[in-house]
């Protein structure tokens, strides 16, 4: 978590140094301190922001609060709270599986990308896994921002073609007897997976259970 940046200092971005190739020249390494593209991007963003703010289309404080919201308040913990409650409250679970959007909203989690969330339950018979083949649609209000691998072209194309092989690379072996369903997110519908409740947790409270629910478990790429 310490690596997060605050996102308010363009001066810092101009001096930013990275030695990873990007898509214009994959595999090459930059040794120079001022990557002109990086500097260009930071300047372009700042210019766009200033123009849009000057026109009154957005409030600069709203921008700051959005950055803060995504960096601090959202994240897989919200989703974990939802899942743990469903494990311990059968009525809530029914609601969650029938109308995920409303049930999640009732817990105070909602937002731009989370308007339609469908919750799918992993069972002994069915394992669900989520992808967005076109871009990286993701239920932000409950899971935060998508991890890098979720955005990777490799995951997006492969998990549909060979889900069992991809899950195996994640360390998750799905027996042939279990049906595997891959759900492709869209701008309209996002999916949240309700993982199987681990055995031997009958006496745990919802808070304790929430600690066990991981982000990857709610994408379907890990078991708990």
């Amino acid at each position: 978590m310490a690596k997060k940046t605050s996102g308010s200092d363009d001066g810092r971005a101009q001096g930013h140094h990275h030695d990873q190739g990007h898509h214009h020249d994959q595999g090459h390494h930059h040794d120079h301190k001022h990557d002109p593209l990086e500097e260009g991007a930071a300047l372009r963003v700042r210019a766009l922001e200033e123009i849009v703010v000057a026109k009154g289309l957005v409030d600069p404080e709203a921008l700051d609060s959005i950055v803060e919201y995504y960096e601090r308040e959202t994240g897989p913990r919200n989703g974990a709270t939802v899942v743990a409650r469903a494990w311990t409250d059968p009525e809530f679970k029914d609601w969650l599986l029938n109308d995920g959007t409303a049930a999640i909203r009732s817990m105070g989690f909602g937002g731009v990308q989370g308007e339609h969330i469908r919750v799918l339950e992993n069972t002994d018979e069915v394992h669900n896994v989520v992808v967005c083949t076109l871009c990286s649609c993701y239920p932000w209000p409950v899971l935060g921002l998508a991890p890098a691998w979720y955005k990777s072209p490799a995951y997006r194309s492969r998990v549909v073609r060979e889900p069992r092989a991809v899950l195996k690379e994640f360390g998750l072996e799905i027996p042939r007897t279990v049906q595997l369903r891959v759900w492709d997110s869209t701008a309209e519908v996002r999916y949240l997976i309700m993982p199987k409740r681990p055995a031997g947790t009958e006496k745990m409270s919802a808070e304790e259970l929430a600690q066990m629910v991981t982000r990857d478990g709610m994408i379907g790429t890990a078991a708990l």
């Binding site: 605050s6 922001e49 957005v58 995504y70």
Partner: peptide, 18 residues
């Protein structure tokens, strides 16, 4: 993993969301 690797990632993300 950091959510935003450089400040401008956060700014352009927030601009669209706003």
């Amino acid at each position: 993993e950091p959510l935003f690797r450089t400040p401008w990632h956060a700014r352009i993300f927030a601009l669209i969301v706003a």
